[in-house]
Structure formats: structure tokens, C-alpha cells
Design a protein around this nucleic acid. Structure first.
Length: 637
DNA sequence: GATTAGGGTTTG
């Protein structure tokens, strides 16, 4: 011991480090690998720090003594390294332990007590250090985004890496390369944990305690280098497991699919994968203990028991040993889907959170609930769709249609175009409407006029109310106007009125042919909208429902677009606006899929196929989703 | 005394 009072250490800012020097530094932990046994003789910990200069430094820390390495629990912690050697590797500056290396770690949270964590028996700690820590805390709070991968089990999703703070309840050897840890954090996962099969006798821990907590415990398989650490852990200890991986497991059992969550701590140390024991005095452990103590065991137990559980249990070979079955699976056993697939039933289900991370285009099978949908008013969801140019347009309102037809009616019918081999013509002049002239052309069949209900007529100068009235009497009404050489159509209006249905053609895609072409249809009575469209060069528009479904499967939420003429709802979109009963059916279906006034938990599940595709809006790229090959289950209709 | 690892997820 020196008798000279400690002069205080000099700390080098991270932007002033020189190759080959040995320095003291302070920094905020940006990344770290908890200490692990290296392939050499020492433990190793890789720690990346940053300071107010905004320069990062990755440090390779070795020690034969596990405790001598920095006691870092999470990113954001603040470290002080003494006697760190600076060197350059692959053109990057790095720090490495040198003789006499020592470290002290502090919590990084602004306002938390400044308590040094170190294994050093004697260490220098002055008000200067206190100030350094406080300054770094303030700087970090303003400059480093608060991103933590620390999650509670209730917040985990399938296909995710996260850090877990938990208590060890049980452990068991599985085989040479993997080891089972049973842990809990007092919260319940969105999907029940998988149950890893083990030989009954190898499970170490309080079996009755584990049984009581069965819905709250998860099974974690740890692999390779982590097995050694896992074996050494004490039951009851508090752990932080870094970069734990979740994966959704789907077991198809008879007709129902049971989902469970797998937890893996893969081999290697990438991304800081590892396990660290947390001391009892750790603030996060304090918090965890409170959660564990407040768990209402009677509530978690009462979910079990009863006939249904034992029935389901028999069909679940993957759940065993300690295993019983959670309420989730019971519910899933019982729930039928409100929508079903009409194709590709072989596809595996994908959770929405996984879909949201992937690139387009792809196709998925999903199981989700309909959280909400748009538009809420039925008539707003009906559109006209061109199957050729894929454009959507609004169905013209009757008022607008009336205006379009009246514009056409302003033109006087040309008598030269009347009474041809195709049709017989009649013309009237209205008395009270400014002498508006109306011409009707009755299409003949081999020179003979058919009965009205088989007869198609052309009308010139007619207004909407007249056309509608005539379309009830005749097989079909085609509004026309006199052109230079022939009667002509205007695709702003329907090309055919049939009963109450208005048939539209696409203005962009149609190339109109002479009306006399209908001569080729005289033997094909009754005329259908598609045959009329075909000979007149019209690309007919389809009536479709266009809706946006907000789907939620508990792992994520996505908006999927539905475009359907009649397959999904099994209601023709072309007729819905004309038929009160169909509208009632539609309302009933939507209320079934997305019941008003109750919680989403009680909504039915929907089995759907969706496809993802890329949409470019200016410079912005976006992935959209569309439902396809899905239909409302028959028992709902 | 040198080595270890040198951040950037397994494929169980």
C-alpha cells in the first residue's frame, strides 16, 4: 500500500485512444457477452462501450477468474476499466485486458443509487467517480435510445430473441448436447410452453412446486457450451438468460391445431447468448420477487382440472412428464374456425409476427381474429372492379347515373338509324318535358319480335326511372344514342340493365364494336350480360366487396385487404345493394366474425390464406396483404 | 508465457 494519497486516475476519452498504450476508461455498455469459458484457459467477456465522445470501443476481457470480469447485467450499465491495453485489430481499435486489469460496474439508470459492483477487494472510488457515473447517465439518457431486449414471458412472441429474468425451478439432463431448465417469471406466455420429454428421474427441483406452477413455468433447452453452465445452476436461483429464442410449435392433432412456444438457448455466444446468475440484491430480482409473491396460485390452478383437460391430454403426446395442459389448448380444442380455406390446406400456419418480418411476395396460412374491419357501412364496401386493368371504381349513385343518362337524352334520335334488320323502332315526344324525344328499338329474332320477357330493347333519350321500369318488363335494356352511322353506347352508364342489376363496362379496356354485331347473337336467346359484352367489345366490370380486415393472432396485428365477388361471403356483391335479405345476412356474418360489445378473447378464430405483395407509393415501399381462397364456414351462413 | 476472441443469433 502506498502511503501517498491516491492521486486519482486519469480517464482517457474513447476518441483519444492510442495503439499500444494502457489506459483507464469509463463508458456506457452498448453490448456485452456475459463471461463464458473460452477455448483457451480463461473466461472471456466481450464488452462494447461508448462515451460522451460518441466513439465506441470493443473490449476483449480475459481472466482465469470469472468474478474478475465486469459484472454487467444489462446494456446501459456503466463500466470503469483500469489498465486496459489499446491495440489495433483489422484496422479497428480494440481494448484488451492487460496485467492488473480491474473493473467496476454501475447501474446506468438515471437517479439510481451509485453502487459499485466489483470483485476487487481494494478499489479506488472517489467523488470524481461518482461524478463520472452521473455524467454518463445523463449523457446516455439523452443520446442512447432506451432499447431493452428484456421481456416478461407474457410479452414474448414466437420467433423472437429476448432476455429473460427468471427463477430456476427445475433442471434435467436431456442428452449430451442439450439440457433442460424449467423457469418462471410469474407471468404467463401468450402460447403455452412446450414440454420437453425427459426421463422422469432426472428432473431436479421441487416437483410439487413445479406442479403447482405448471401454467407459469416454461421449458428452456440450452445447448452446447451453455450445458456446462446450466448444470451448475442452483434451484431457486435468479437468472438472466440472454438472447433466448422462441419458436412456435404447431402440432396437428386430429382436426385441431395446438400451438405451443419452444424456448431455445442456442449454442455459441453470438449476440451475447448466455446465462448469468443475478444476486438477491439486484433491483430487477427485487421486482421479480414481488411479481412471484403476488401470483395468485389458486387462480392459475383453477384453470385446470375438469373433464375437458383430461380428454385433451390424451391427444397431446408432446406434453407429458410434469405436463398437464393449459386452458389455451382446451379452448383451441373446442373452437372451430369461422372461416375456412378453400385450397392449400396443407400449408403450415404462420404467426403474424413472423409474417410481418418477412419480405413479399409470399403466401401464408394464418389463424387470427378479426379485431376490426373497414368500411363499417356495407354500401361503402361495394365497388366495381376491372379484371383486365385491375382498377377499382365506385358504383355510381342513382343521382349521378340519372345525370349521365339525361345528358344522353338531350340528343334527338336520328330517324335514319331506326327500323333496321336488327330491330323495329318507335319514337315518342314527351309533352311536359320540353319535347324530349324517346326512341325504343326492339331487337328481332329472325325478323320476328319475341315476347317482352325474351326481348332486348335499345333506348334513346330515356331517363333512369323509365329505363328501370322497362328493365322489369323486358329481358334487357341497353341505353344508346344516335351516332353518325350507328347507334352508340356510353360506358359512363351501364351497358345493360337487367331486372334491377346494372351491368357496367370498363372505359379503359373496352373497344366498342358496332351495335349491329348483336346480329350474331340472334340465335343465342336469352342474351346474357357476358355475351352482349363480348360481341360489343366491352370488358365487363365485376361487383366486388372491398374491405380491410385488421387481423390479430396474439403475436401481431396486420391489415389484410379482402376483395370478393361472392366466394368469401357466399353472397353476390352484384346483388347485395338490391336485396334487403342479403344485406341482413351480410350484417349477421360480420357480427359473427367481429362480434360487437365483447372482448376479442371471445371472438371466433378465422383460418385464412393471405398473400403479401409490394406496393410502391412514390419513393416509399410498403408490404400489403390480401386475403384469398378463404370462405366463411358454412355453419355461419 | 501464450492462448482465448476479435459482437451480428440455430437450424437442436
Amino acid at each position: 500500500m502506498s502511503l501517498v494519497p491516491a492521486k486519482g486516475y486519469i480517464y482517457t476519452p474513447l476518441n483519444q485512444l492510442k495503439d499500444g498504450t494502457v489506459v483507464n476508461v469509463y463508458g456506457v455498455v452498448k453490448f456485452f457477452k456475459p463471461p463464458y469459458l473460452s477455448k483457451g484457459t480463461d473466461y472471456c467477456s466481450v464488452v462494447t462501450i461508448v462515451d460522451q465522445t460518441n466513439v465506441k470501443l470493443t473490449c476483449l476481457l480475459f481472466s482465469g477468474n470469472y468474478e474478475a470480469l465486469p459484472i454487467i447485467y444489462k446494456n446501459g450499465d456503466i463500466v470503469r476499466f483500469h489498465r486496459l491495453k489499446i491495440q489495433v485489430y483489422k484496422k479497428e481499435t480494440q481494448g484488451i485486458t492487460s496485467s492488473g486489469f480491474a473493473s467496476v460496474t454501475f447501474e446506468g439508470t438515471l437517479g439510481a443509487p451509485v453502487i459499485p459492483r466489483t470483485s476487487s477487494k481494494y478499489f479506488n472510488f472517489t467523488t470524481e467517480d461518482h461524478k463520472m457515473v452521473e455524467a454518463l447517465r445523463v449523457w446516455a439518457s439523452n443520446h442512447i435510445p432506451r432499447s431493452s431486449s428484456l421481456l416478461q414471458l407474457c410479452d414474448v412472441q414466437p420467433m423472437q430473441y429476448f432476455d429473460l429474468t427468471c427463477q430456476l425451478l427445475g433442471k434435467a439432463e436431456v442428452d449430451g448436447t442439450s439440457f433442460l431448465l424449467k423457469v418462471w417469471d410469474g407471468t404467463r406466455t401468450p402460447f403455452p410452453s412446450w414440454r420437453v420429454l425427459i426421463r422422469d428421474l432426472v428432473l431436479e427441483g421441487d416437483l410439487s412446486h413445479m406442479h403447482r406452477l405448471q401454467n407459469l413455468t416454461i421449458d428452456i433447452l440450452v445447448y452446447d457450451n451453455h450445458v456446462r453452465v446450466a448444470k451448475s445452476l442452483k434451484i431457486g436461483s435468479f437468472l438472466r438468460i440472454y438472447s433466448l429464442h422462441t419458436k412456435l410449435q404447431s402440432n396437428s392433432e386430429s382436426q385441431s391445431t395446438l400451438l405451443s412456444l419452444e424456448f431455445h438457448l442456442h449454442g455459441g455466444t453470438s449476440y451475447g447468448r448466455g446465462i448469468r446468475v443475478l444476486p438477491e440484491n439486484n433491483s430487477d430480482v427485487d421486482q421479480l420477487k414481488k411479481v412471484l409473491e403476488s401470483v395468485d396460485l389458486t387462480a392459475s390452478q383453477s384453470l385446470l382440472g375438469g373433464v375437458c383437460v383430461s380428454q385433451c391430454e390424451n391427444s397431446l403426446p408432446t406434453l407429458s412428464s410434469s405436463g398437464s395442459v393449459s386452458l389455451y389448448e382446451v379452448e383451441r380444442c373446442q373452437q372451430l374456425s369461422a372461416t375456412i380455406l378453400t385450397d392449400r390446406q396443407y400449408l403450415e400456419k404462420t404467426p403474424l409476427c413472423a409474417i410481418l418480418k418477412q419480405k413479399a411476395p409470399q403466401q401464408y396460412r394464418i389463424r387470427a381474429k378479426l379485431r376490426s374491419y373497414k368500411p363499417r357501412r356495407l354500401f361503402e364496401s361495394v365497388k366495381l372492379y376491372c379484371p383486365k386493368c385491375f382498377t377499382l371504381q365506385e358504383v355510381p349513385h342513382d343521382g349521378d347515373l340519372d345525370i349521365i343518362l339525361q345528358e344522353g337524352a338531350a340528343k334527338t334520335p336520328d330517324t335514319k338509324l331506326q327500323n333496321t334488320s336488327l330491330y323495329d323502332s318507335n319514337m315518342w315526344t314527351t309533352e311536359d318535358q320540353g319535347g324530349r324525344k324517346i326512341a325504343l328499338h326492339f331487337v328481332k329474332n329472325h325478323g320476328i319480335l319475341p315476347l317482352p320477357n325474351e326481348c332486348v330493347i335499345f333506348i334513346e333519350g330515356g331517363v333512369l326511372s323509365e329505363i328501370c321500369e322497362l328493365s322489369n318488363k323486358f329481358h334487357g335494356v341497353i341505353p344508346v344514342r344516335s351516332g353518325i352511322e350507328d347507334l352508340e353506347l356510353d360506358l359512363s352508364a351501364p351497358f345493360l340493365f337487367q331486372e334491377k342489376t346494372h351491368h357496367y363496362g370498363c372505359k379503359q379496356c373496352s373497344s366498342l364494336r358496332p351495335i349491329q354485331n348483336l346480329n350474331s347473337l340472334v340465335d343465342k336467346i336469352p342474351w346474357t350480360p357476358s355475351s352482349v359484352a363480348e360481341v360489343l367489345g366491352i370488358v365487363p366490370l365485376q361487383y366486388v366487396f372491398v374491405m380491410t380486415f385488421t387481423l390479430d393472432d396474439g403475436t401481431g396485428v396486420l391489415e389484410a385487404y379482402l376483395m370478393d365477388s361472392d366466394k368469401f361471403f357466399q353472397i353476390p356483391a352484384s346483388e347485395i345493394l338490391l336485396n334487403d335479405d342479403l344485406q341482413k345476412s351480410m350484417d349477421m356474418i360480420m357480427d359473427m366474425l367481429c362480434p360487437p360489445g365483447i372482448k376479442i378473447d371471445a371472438y371466433p378464430w378465422l383460418e385464412c390464406l393471405i398473400k403479401s405483395y409490394n406496393v410502391t407509393h412514390g419513393t416509399e415501399q410498403k408490404i400489403c396483404y390480401q386475403l384469398f381462397d378463404t370462405t366463411v364456414a358454412e355453419d355461419l351462413i
